[in-house]
Amino acid sequence: MHPAAPAIELRAFTKTYGRATGVDRLTVTVETGEVFGFLGPNGAGKTTTLRTLTGLLRPTSGQVRVLGLDPVADHRRLAPRLGYLPGELRLYPELTGSQTLGLLGDLQGVPTPRRAELCERLALSAADLARPVREYSRGMKQKIGLVQALQHDPELVVLDEPSEGLDPLVQETFFALLKETAAAGRTVLLSSHVLPEVQRACGRVAIVRSGRLVTVQTVAALREARARRVRLVLEDGHGPRPLGAAEAWSPAWNRGEVRLLIPPEDLVSALRELLAALPVTDLTVEEAGLEEAFLDLYRAGEAGPGTTNRTMPGTKTEAQL
């Protein structure tokens, strides 16, 4: 692979299942050494994309390159360099944890220098590993999944909902492992529907919805572009009423009080209009959480093309990529 080549390159990647479209013209590039987040609700096309990257699915159209290779045509050259944790990890129930890791290591066909270290750090004891997987809790299975994905020290790690089922202590270890992996120059693609997980681990994030790319931006830009949470208390206490242009900012009414999420660039003009039109007795403005910013971004996407001007500053839209 050329040193400057991206670790993952999707160009107009489309995957259809009969008439249904799983992923629609997705264009994303992940650079080598990046921890990249792939964020979206269930059914957004994240798992389909990840399965295509690992060669399980064939793209219907578009180009998919992983470490400079075609995931299907070059599968045998690519797979030894790849670590993959499926979203719904299924293991052979009658095999012990140790047998499972041995089997998957043998199939990987490369040495597994990190197995013992990872088992120790993820608190998988020898007694745990000697038990059949059918006796494992969800968290224990997830630990086995993480070990098998990382034990051969792969160049690219693809993780689908990796922290599902992990207790907080193990989650800490997991995030430390991700940090070390990135520091060692490895690339990580992490898919999740949990924003804080992505926020904590990733440098950049792609947000997808209904198989389409909503935006790609750095987590820092997403944080900076957080919407403002505005709370207005109205004198008359009459409750919901038309807000004109401010209806676009997701008003939530509670008797004589209304809360809105307003992008920072629209804040001043929106407040001027609201204060002029409403009998406001009290007003608070604060930064919305990242979660709310994400939801706001989603609502903007759902509202249709006419609202795309609400995309946050620093954001690359699909058309810009």
């Binding site: 399965r51 690992t54 060669g55 399980l56 599968h75 045998r76 050259r77 690519l78 797979a79 030894p80 790849l82 993959y84 499926p86 719904e88 990890l89 299924r90 293991l91 052979y92 998957l104 199939l107 990987q108 066909g109 098998q148």
Partner: peptide, 14 residues
């Protein structure tokens, strides 16, 4: 059916 294919086919086996 069981989903274990994901772990097998993502290894370097044809």
């Amino acid at each position: 059916e069981s989903g274990t294919i994901e772990l097998l086919i993502t290894r370097p086996i044809s």
